[in-house]
Each structure stands twice: as structure tokens, then as C-alpha cells.
Simulated scan of single mutants.
Amino acid sequence: MHELSVTENILAIAEKHARKAGATRVTDIHIVIGQLSSIVDDSVQFYWDMISEGTLCTGAKLHFSRKPAQMHCRACQHTFTLIRGELIPCPECSSMDLRIVSGEEFFLDSIEIERDQPDQEP
């Protein structure tokens, strides 16, 4: 259920920046989600369709980009990418003394907007 509050935050951020840029409408929103994040794309989309209605973001398309998880072995200093998101020992030395380098991210990367064009003189 935390996807609702996350989606509300995405909407607030997108609207804030869209207004600041003089937008009449937000058309696309690009979101980055780390492979280890517990955020579920479908849930965000579900809530988005409900809460964005009647805002600058009505009808905006959400684009989700998943960032792979990378781990760093503290024992041998090897950095590797998790294939399926399952925690595995270091492929170099089999140690489980690992640190997450990336994969927990969740952020709004960019928005695309429309603006009224100023009247052109003939």
C-alpha cells in the first residue's frame, strides 16, 4: 500500500516542476526504480490513473526504467551485478560480506510537458 504515498509524491513533484516551467499539461513521466526496490510498477500505475485525474498530469504516461542491482564484495573488492535480484555469494571468492552499490533507487528522472506557444506575429 506504500505505492499510494509514493505515487502522491510523484504527482506533487511533477506538478511543482511543470508549473514552474509554465506547462499546460504533463505528457510523460520517467521513473527509475532499482531492482531491489519494493516498488511495484503496476501498483504505481493503478494509483496514478486515479489520483492524477483533474490535474496537470491527467493522461500523462508513466515510463518505468529498472536499474540493475550491483553488489560490492568487502572481502575481495569485486563488484558484480545480480542477475535475478536474488542475493548470491560473491562469484569471485564466495563471501557473503557484501555491500549494495545500486539497485535500491527510486526517483522521478524527468518529465515532458506541453506549453502554450506565444502568438506568432505574421
Rank of each mutant, 00 (worst) to 15 (best):
I29A: 14
C93A: 03
A18D: 06
R74E: 14
E92G: 02
R19C: 07
L36V: 08
A75V: 03
C90K: 09
E104R: 12
Q45D: 10
G85T: 11
D119I: 05
I39Q: 07
A69S: 10
V32A: 10
G59I: 12
I100S: 05
I88M: 15
H17G: 09
Q120A: 14
A60R: 03
T7D: 09
E121V: 11
V26R: 00
R19S: 06
A75E: 14
K20R: 15
L62V: 06
F80K: 09
Q70L: 10
T55E: 00
I88Q: 15
T27H: 07
L82F: 12
I51Q: 08
I33E: 04
Q77H: 13
Y47P: 06
V44D: 01
G103L: 09
M71K: 04
A60T: 07
C73M: 09
P89I: 00
H78W: 14
S5D: 03
I83P: 02
I88N: 09
A75K: 08
P118G: 10
H17T: 03
A12V: 04
N9V: 02
R25V: 08
G103Q: 03
T55K: 06
C73S: 05
V26I: 14
A12R: 15
E112N: 06
I100K: 00
I88R: 15
D28Y: 11
D41Q: 09
I100A: 01
D97T: 06
H17V: 06
K20I: 00
L87A: 05
N9S: 13
H17Y: 15
I29Q: 11
V44A: 02
K16Y: 11
R66P: 00
